[in-house]
Design a protein around this nucleic acid. Structure first.
Length: 263
DNA sequence: CGTGGCTCCTGGCGGC
DNA sequence: TGCCGCCAGGAGCCAC
């Protein structure tokens, strides 16, 4: 699930629940989510600290611990956060559990463990540089968007999903943006005219804003969106034709061949 | 440089 | 009912 809107919702959730509370206990239920980081180091860096504020960049959420030190959360395909009180209500697939001084817990939940929990030392800009991330999709301006995409040769879907060009869009929201802009996902970037590129930029902003407003919940999204219709029998809300389903870069891609014309 | 395939993982679902 | 293969909203790596 976690693309930019989902992670933004996680950020707001974290901000509303876990700030300014002393971390008393750190439990690692499965150390595979730590990758190269040792359990010992994670505990040493977290215990006794507080999360002062958080930042999101693309699909990453960074929780600030001390000056130039962050707890890094990446959610892979199935990650989320859960703040709760009672011990017996631990969510299934909790991999990391923090216990605060008020007795509440914050769980990093990840069924498939494709995400990562880490510690980063440095400024946010250093992190972005190390991960080679492009500008955040929610903050990029039109001139930068145009600049970054016009030098690309591949398909627009691949480009929009490329975190080095721009960070935040994943498979689902890329399909949504292409659908809203009526652009076929296989269109090669150089074949797009400025008007189409501008439309993609504007629709991207609208989609991201709407998705965050809907708490990234497909059921709350407008019926005119692709999201609520992908997967369940799948009919285009505009043409009412059956949605097409293809693979691009081995990712399932939904689109409407009536609205999004073959390049 | 871009694309497609494979890999890391777990678990739900449809088909037989 | 049970088992199996397929698939899933991420992303790094490698061969072509």
């Amino acid at each position: 699930m976690p693309e930019l809107p989902d992670v933004e919702v996680f950020k707001r959730y974290l901000d509303a629940t876990a700030l300014h509370k002393s971390i008393q206990k750190v439990e690692v239920e499965d150390n595979r989510v730590l990758r190269d980081l040792t359990v010992q180091k994670l505990k040493r860096r977290l215990r006794g600290q507080k999360i002062h504020h958080s930042r999101r960049h693309g699909k990453y959420l960074l929780a600030n611990l001390v000056e130039r030190e962050w707890l890094v959360l990446h959610f892979g395909m199935s990650g989320r956060l859960k703040y709760f009180k009672a011990e017996y209500s631990w969510p299934q697939h909790s991999r990391i559990l923090l216990t605060f001084s008020n007795g509440f817990h914050l769980a990093y939940v990840s069924q498939r463990m494709l995400g990562e929990v880490g510690i980063f030392s440095g400024d946010l800009d250093d992190f972005i540089e190390e991960k080679e991330l492009g500008l955040d999709a929610g903050e990029i301006g039109w001139d930068q968007f145009k600049e970054r995409f016009k030098s690309r040769r591949g398909s627009i879907k691949s480009a929009l999903m490329n975190q080095q060009i721009m960070a935040g869009l994943g498979n689902i929201y890329t399909d949504e943006v292409l659908f809203q802009a009526c652009v076929h996902p296989k269109t090669s970037v150089p074949d797009l005219d400025t008007k189409q590129l501008k439309s993609l930029f504007e629709k991207m902003n609208a989609v991201l804003t709407t998705a965050v407003d809907c708490q990234a919940d497909p059921e709350k999204m407008p019926d005119s969106y692709l999201l609520p219709h992908r997967d369940k029998g799948g009919r285009c809300p505009r043409s009412h034709g059956e949605l097409d389903r293809i693979k691009i870069n081995s990712r399932t891609t939904f689109f409407c061949s009536a609205c999004q014309r073959q390049p």
